[in-house]
Nucleic acid binder design. Structure first.
Lengths: 336, 336
DNA sequence: CCCCGCCCTGCAAGCGGTTGCATTGGGGGG
DNA sequence: CCCCCCAATGCAACCGCTTGCAGGGCGGGG
């Protein structure tokens, strides 16, 4: 009932081998034969069977997209970009969610299920254990990490340390000295360095300015507005309130901002807030932030993986560090 | 080099047929044989070849996830939920982005590329043309729509008309009369009724209250904070400023809120704002909204598709309408 | 004690392409 | 004019698993 390659072959008056080659545009088929085959295929509405093709060739024309979340803006934006890039060249994106929970009891992700399923992998800054990573490597397909580096694989990321420094220096430049940080937990040992590096950047810039922020100024929150708000509420309780907050992401910053306003702080008069990402919403709400080219992360990662799949070994170990930029809007200003 | 079913068969001392059946837990294999095979497979680290399996059986164990966006919160949340539900039962999620642009010149989505690729489809409120939809139907796999209905397929959605009415009635109940709407373009003819229905609900509630909002009170914006802000800026220019705004989504509401505050409006004193979705950020920023169970949409859609794939024809035409609820927070209150 | 049936298992024919290798037909050089 | 080589095709052997059908063994009923 479905039209097979043999049907096309018959219609075009050639062998199935020629049809296979012609439709893939292999050079060993004469231009005219190619045209004949193409026409016949189009006429019959032929579509190659992906499974048959994969089975025979070993290629899946699919790239796995491994991610702990699909719903957070950063991840979602990268995912969208990767999918688009892949689709443009005829590749499919297989979405693979891995346990987002940082808890130890979560069952580990079994990379084996991907064996033979994908030609390459794009891994979004996932909190994977060394074991899980090894499993992925054992797949022996090109892997590109996004938002995190990993030895032996490609990566696309930003310089998180510098992000932390830039954000903090912006605040320092405005005259702030009591600058707090809200972000990731340094006790977290997973493969998720971004929040830690941003925190380190903050600390380094502070120290460089001769300041030594008290411990309570380093607040812990995961990358959500809700926990950002809670962290800010704690900061506002402090006897020595900070005058500015560097949030490790815009999402966190939204929560911080909201808590500040609810506490009667004027922004930026009483409280300056800066985030990281340049979230889609940030421009609309006037949040000052360190912008990073999120979609570009995805695009590049996809391109790298595709290149290596295509045989370009020269890029096999490429590590791209994308530029970030300070975007000044209305949530930062000089302290009172 | 890779371990094949034959290797397992040899190790277990049975035929490949038995291995195949045993690993899938078919009842026609004795319990002890099953155990022997399982052990042998585990021992060898055997993983079934998906392509071979698909080719032979016609099943792909994959469900396509068709979406115009992956990065917007609503879509991303549904996607995450669908993926999780699928993975839990061993199915893969194939992400398929379709042209999000509403423009006519965008090249149409060719459903044929999915032929033989998926066992089912979850389609997120996509602006598909009738032709594109027909192409999908021709795949003859179970299809569940999310956020939009479609004749002849399953669907999971909310009652958008009622959402519009509830939101508006909340505002009316607080004493507002000058209530504006910010949302989708009624000129848009694609398969995307939600914003239109919400608008209709607003209008109906207004009329029911004996009010007839002037045309400029119906502002157009797509589902982003940026355009929501612009729409609000226009509303604020009006000689007769509204005292409340019903935004068709929380994203829009964020833009609206921001514009209002920047214009010096106190919220909710001078301006009440209500959205729709209960976006992840909404709780943190205190946005009053009509909550809908977004992840539940995805979960249910996946379940429906899986059920029909599993042969449960009774659900083939199921249309689920999920409940919504008013969540009162700090952005709505009585007018001055 | 024999025969019938039921359980399990094995056989082998696909599923629909891909590709190494052989084959065919010309064209150009000696 | 003959031979060699290259370009374009065809042949057929897989790729690894599923499944209809047949076969073998064993328990129970007649």
């Amino acid at each position: 009932m479905t039209v097979r390659i043999e049907d096309v072959a018959r219609a075009a008056g050639v062998s199935t081998a020629t049809v296979s080659r012609a439709l893939r545009g292999l050079p060993s088929v004469s231009a005219e034969t190619q045209q004949i085959v193409r026409d016949a295929a189009a006429e019959l509405g032929y579509v190659v069977s992906r499974s048959a093709s994969s089975l025979a060739s070993g290629r899946t024309l699919t790239v796995g997209l491994v991610t702990p979340y699909a719903s957070r803006w950063y991840y979602a934006t990268v995912i969208e970009a990767v999918e688009r890039e892949l689709r443009a060249v005829g590749y499919d994106a297989l979405l693979v969610g891995v346990g987002a929970s940082m808890t130890e009891d979560a069952e580990p992700f079994r990379a084996e299920v991907l064996r033979g399923r994908v030609d390459g992998l794009v891994i979004l800054t996932a909190p994977l254990t060394g074991q899980e990573l090894d499993g992925l490597r054992r797949l022996t397909v090109p892997i590109a990490f996004v938002g995190a580096g990993a030895p032996g694989a490609m990566s696309v990321r930003i310089d998180d340390l510098s992000v932390g420094r830039t954000a903090t220096q912006h605040l320092l430049g405005l005259g702030h000295a009591k600058i707090a940080y809200v972000g990731g937990d340094p006790a977290d040992r997973r493969n998720f360095a971004a929040p830690l590096d941003r925190r380190a950047g903050w600390l380094s810039a502070m120290r460089e300015a001769g300041l030594d922020p008290p411990a309570p100024y380093a607040e812990i929150s995961d990358f959500t507005a809700a926990t950002g708000r809670q962290a800010m509420e704690r900061l506002l309780e402090l006897p020595e309130r900070p005058t500015a907050v560097f949030a490790a992401s815009d999402d966190i910053a939204f929560g911080v901002l909201s808590a500040a306003r609810d506490a009667g702080c004027r922004v930026p008069g009483d409280m300056s807030v800066i985030g990281v990402d340049d979230h889609e919403i940030s421009a609309a709400v006037g949040l000052t932030t360190i912008a990073q080219p999120v979609a570009e992360h995805g695009r590049l990662a996809a391109k790298l993986v595709l290149a290596v799949i295509g045989g370009d070994d020269s890029r096999r170990h490429e590590h791209v560090v994308l530029p970030t930029s300070l975007v000044c809007r209305e949530t930062t200003g000089p302290p009172r």
